[in-house]
């Protein structure tokens, strides 16, 4: 088992290195000079050759690309992601450090909703069948097909602007006002969870249907166990392996969806930081955010693989 985990982590590190290299090279193959873009956007005294040279030196852009690449990698190992173009006194790491917890909170709230709502919904559809199954299947199909920003926009319209139950967006520190913090978390988290809840419900449904058909379920029934006991102890528990895997993989894709949800609800996370930085052409922040999100993505995939290996020893090979 330890070997399996180590091998998986090793592959993950190689993949992360490739990701860093791709992102770095992509941004350094930029058509146009970042220093010129920076000077133009600041509008400070125009783009003179001297000013350009000075900015290039400050940002290390006068070095050969390979040297910049080496420096960037060495910096990464020490948690140094460079400094922002717009605000050269702030490190990229400090920007990300301020935003990452908010995004993770949103993602885990959505994942929690997916488990609490999706698993019972899927189990219900599989057990009852008939019109209940049809209704749940239709709902989950809709949940998968609706863009997250459309769901979010209508949440704002209905629950914030018309009913006034929740704020339309924004963020309050948990430490300053816990209730307000949760009130502002709820709508974006539920909007974000629609897709993953639908996927989890579908996966649970098909896994339960598959498990119910197994011989040992018939055996348990024939021993005279109450139906509910058979279901909760034998069927549901054995159905959860594929559900756990799906959940893990979907959590990764939630990271992408936060970009849109954070925009709708002006939630100050990694996604809104990324969009702002793309608009401002702040390359170091874009680079940092993309690498951190990819690293999380890879980490989650490793965790899912390892968890699957623990749950099902056959998968280790």
């Amino acid at each position: 088992m330890a070997r399996f985990i180590l091998k998986r982590i090793g592959l993950g590190i190689v993949l992360l290195w490739l990701v860093v290299t791709v992102v770095f090279l992509a941004l350094h193959a930029v058509p146009g000079d970042p220093a010129a873009i920076l000077l133009t956007s600041e509008g400070s005294g125009g783009v003179t050759p001297e000013a350009l040279e000075k900015v290039r030196q400050q940002l290390g852009l006068d070095q050969p690309v390979l040297v910049q690449y080496r420096d960037y990698l060495l910096g990464l190992l020490q948690g140094d992601l460079g400094t922002s173009f717009r605000n050269t006194s702030s490190t990229v790491a400090s920007y990300i450090g301020a935003r990452l917890p908010n995004t993770l909170e949103l993602v885990f709230a959505a994942a929690l909703i997916a488990v609490v709502v999706g698993v019972p919904l899927g189990a219900l559809a599989a057990r009852r069948g008939g019109w209940i199954d049809t209704v749940i299947s239709t709902l989950t199909t809709l949940g998968i097909s609706m863009p997250v920003y459309v769901i979010g926009t209508f949440f704002v319209l209905i629950f914030a602007l018309q009913l006034g139950w929740f704020p339309a967006g924004g963020f309050t520190e948990f430490s300053s006002d816990p209730i307000e913090h949760l009130r502002k978390l709820l709508l974006p988290a539920v909007a974000l969870s629609f897709g993953i809840t639908s996927v989890v419900a579908r996966m649970t449904r098909s896994a339960v249907l598959e498990t119910v058909a197994q011989d040992w379920v018939r055996t348990a029934k024939s021993q005279g166990l109450p139906r509910n006991t058979v279901f909760s102890r034998h069927v549901l528990r054995n159905s959860l392996n594929p559900v756990v895997t799906t959940l893990g993989l979907e959590i990764g894709s939630l990271l992408g969806s936060t970009v849109l949800v954070e925009r709708v609800f002006t939630w100050p996370g990694m996604g809104s930081l990324l969009v702002d930085s793309v608009n401002a052409r702040d390359y170091p922040i874009v680079q940092g955010v993309v690498i951190v999100i990819a690293a999380l993505f890879i980490l989650i995939n490793i965790a899912v693989d390892v968890l699957y290996g623990v749950l099902d020893p056959r998968a280790r090979h």
Binding site: L15, L16, L18, V19, V22, V23, A26, L27, A29, V30, P31, G252, S253, L255, G256, S257, V259, L260, L274, V275, S277, V278, R281, Y283, V286, V289, V290, I293, A294, F297, I298
Partner: peptide, 18 residues
């Protein structure tokens, strides 16, 4: 594998930046 290591929208935003 490298392409799959990014959420699609994030990689798309990176390219749009460039």
């Amino acid at each position: 594998d490298v392409i799959l290591a990014f959420p699609p929208i994030v990689l798309a935003l990176l390219v749009v930046t460039i």
